[in-house]
Computed example of a mutant assay.
Amino acid sequence: MMGRKSIDEDIESRLPLIISMIKDNFTDKEIAEKLGVSLSTWRRKKSQNNKIKAIIDEICDERNSEVEQALFKCCTGYHYYEDVVTKVKEQVLSEDGETILVKEDVKISKVKKYKGPDVVAQKYWLNNRKKAAWKDDPNKTEIDKKALKLKEKQIESGGW
């Protein structure tokens, strides 16, 4: 007689489902419910199981990379295509020149557009990539350090 699968074996056998749920932004609670385990069990297994940790890290890295690429495009500007809907009217004339029929149709055409660079995205990118050169107030750190030293001196001298 075969014994029941352990929770680890059961969870590992359902890795494709887990990957799909993580990619679809399921919450831990939703994943636990789908797997038929308690939320605390899922969280424990997620933090202890190396396969699950590796999968979650890989998915997070992929998403972060996608967001970085999109942010970079916003910083530099990009071309894209947009569907534009246009009404087209067609008039059919009779032999004596009067309009007999007005036929309306909808035409969808792709139009190439340009999204210019976004200054806010550029600022965000540079504030995070080159903090020393692009922070809002490059002197703030020095001023804060000096203020802290003055406060420490006041405390030591009992003037606080």
Rank of each mutant, 00 (worst) to 15 (best):
110 K>R: 15
16 P>Y: 15
16 P>R: 10
124 Y>M: 15
88 V>Q: 08
8 D>K: 13
145 K>L: 10
128 N>C: 06
12 E>K: 12
36 G>T: 04
98 E>T: 11
135 K>S: 11
101 L>P: 07
1 M>A: 11
11 I>V: 13
34 K>S: 14
117 P>E: 09
144 D>N: 05
80 Y>S: 04
51 K>W: 01
54 A>Q: 10
65 S>Q: 09
146 K>Y: 08
10 D>R: 09
76 T>K: 03
36 G>D: 05
56 I>H: 05
52 I>W: 01
66 E>A: 09
124 Y>N: 14
38 S>G: 15
26 F>K: 15
105 D>F: 01
122 Q>Y: 07
12 E>V: 14
109 S>Q: 11
125 W>K: 00
31 I>T: 05
138 P>G: 02
73 K>E: 09
91 Q>V: 11
34 K>I: 10
93 L>S: 03
51 K>L: 09
123 K>R: 13
152 E>D: 06
92 V>Q: 15
21 M>N: 04
110 K>N: 11
71 L>R: 00
124 Y>A: 14
160 W>K: 12
85 V>T: 14
34 K>C: 10
22 I>C: 03
88 V>C: 06
63 R>H: 06
116 G>F: 02
128 N>W: 03
82 E>C: 02
121 A>N: 03
132 A>V: 01
139 N>W: 02
58 E>R: 14
77 G>T: 07
97 G>A: 07
24 D>G: 06
92 V>A: 12
65 S>V: 01
32 A>E: 02
131 K>F: 11
77 G>L: 04
66 E>F: 08
94 S>I: 11
156 E>W: 06
67 V>I: 14
68 E>L: 12
123 K>H: 03
69 Q>H: 12
54 A>I: 03
33 E>K: 08
112 K>T: 14
113 K>I: 00
137 D>S: 14
2 M>E: 13
98 E>K: 12
61 D>W: 06
136 D>V: 07
78 Y>L: 02
148 L>K: 13
73 K>V: 00
64 N>F: 13
127 N>Q: 15
23 K>R: 14
6 S>W: 00
17 L>S: 14
32 A>T: 01
28 D>G: 05
39 L>V: 09
16 P>A: 05
79 H>S: 05
85 V>W: 04
143 I>V: 09
59 I>L: 00
77 G>I: 01
1 M>Q: 05
1 M>V: 00
15 L>M: 12
60 C>I: 08
157 S>L: 15
57 D>I: 10
134 W>A: 09
